[in-house]
Design a binder for these strands. Structure first.
Lengths: 218, 218
DNA sequence: AAAAGTATGTTAAATTATAATCAATAGGTT
DNA sequence: AACCTATTGATTATAATTTAACATACTTTT
């Protein structure tokens, strides 16, 4: 009977952070680390780290802690970094170009295979040796190339239309930078990056003290 | 006795989303909306929306619901959008330029006052009429201009150094795009945008089903 | 080789967050 | 104007998440 393991989003969101910290420890030739010490560095509790990791396996040893390289590699596996991903970017504006130029993603195994835009001034230009194509070619391109992740960097009005094309062509992951919520079938994963929302969160927090000044308790 | 109101981060992160949906309703000339209908649109529960809003005041009316314009404006106030913010961007690479070109933030009241980089090839170039300055001028600039939010778009190795300058010069909010965690005094607010972590979350979720295949229950 | 020390994985408790319920009340209707 | 309906804000219940506690087992020291 297969274990119906549902890992909560709270845990999932912490995994990349563990991976980042372990990667740094590894580069600094740290061989082993205890949950306590890792917790102190990251700013979590040791208990939380142990519980998070134990969702996926027993990676540590009593009296020793965790082997940094081993744990780093295990989390890499968990995050799906033992395989590669083909990606396309739709929308070669500011954000689209920025993402396209981000070579770090290549190192992690995310390979950019195509860039699309509808602006004739951009079509034909190359970014990192990839020629920007007319977005009208997108559907055809997706039919002839297996793409794992579609990156949406178009204005919000066009985002759903692009998402629909992705869904229709079997793209299972969407990284959405458009400030809108996409509707997709449940087997398609959408990860949103909503910059405005992030900025508004910051402005809220900058003013929070003011907001409640003078309010009386109940 | 001032009410010691601490709004949880979970609530805060939902506020911009309410603001976005209400803005759209407003543009579509919707006058009023119930928590139920808003919930259906956003994908939350009505109860959650009512509870979130009641942290800040009684904005609705029994039997009627919420007036869209009124609620939109109230949430705008809560988010701190009745004032303006001066910002600077440090790091005029891909992301820095993308953010600099994002005129939407201006509309919300976030005014870009300076861009800094250390690359001589970029210094002197203008983005939206703002000349990129040598990062060596940053500290001096901050002393002569009141800046509310510093936006960090430099490589991770230099991010803490820039954050230190911000802190030293009284910048109270930092929007951090560098893939590292900054250490700042507690009166300084840091909002992180960690793109790699977002992408790794996506790749995790794309593979989650595989990860637990064959595992037996306990 | 035994003792002492360390740090895990796991279970339990506490806390926090979300959802459901419901009395109160305003708006709409006849 | 009285009644009916809708929907809030508040309360209570449930669920999820985080933290603490601890027995167990490995490592290190003597």
């Amino acid at each position: 009977m297969p274990k119906k393991t549902i890992i909560s989003m709270a845990v999932i969101k912490r995994l990349p952070k563990y991976y980042r910290y372990l990667g740094e420890l590894l580069r600094n030739d740290v061989e082993r680390i205890s949950s306590k010490e890792l917790a102190d560095r990251i700013g979590f509790t040791a208990s939380q780290i142990r519980q998070d990791l134990n969702n996926f396996g027993d990676f540590g040893q009593q009296g020793y802690g965790y082997n940094v390289r081993f744990l780093y590699e295990e989390i890499g596996k968990i995050l799906g970094l033992t395989r590669t991903y083909n990606t396309v970017i739709v929308g070669a504006g500011n954000i689209g170009q920025a993402i396209a130029n981000y070579t770090n993603f290549e190192k992690l195994g995310f390979h950019l295979k195509g860039i699309f835009d509808r602006n004739p001034k951009l079509i034909g230009i190359s970014i990192r040796d990839i020629v920007i194509q007319d977005v009208d070619n997108l559907e055809n391109f997706l039919k002839n190339n297996h793409i794992d992740i579609g990156i949406i960097c178009v204005p919000k009005e066009q985002a759903q239309k692009i998402a629909d094309i992705f869904v229709r062509c079997g793209v299972k992951g969407i990284w959405n930078f458009a400030p809108t919520d996409l509707s997709v079938p449940e087997d398609v994963i959408v990860e949103n990056v909503h910059l405005s929302e992030s900025l508004l969160t910051l402005s809220y927090r900058l003013n929070e003290a003011e907001l409640f000044k003078g309010k009386t308790g109940r």
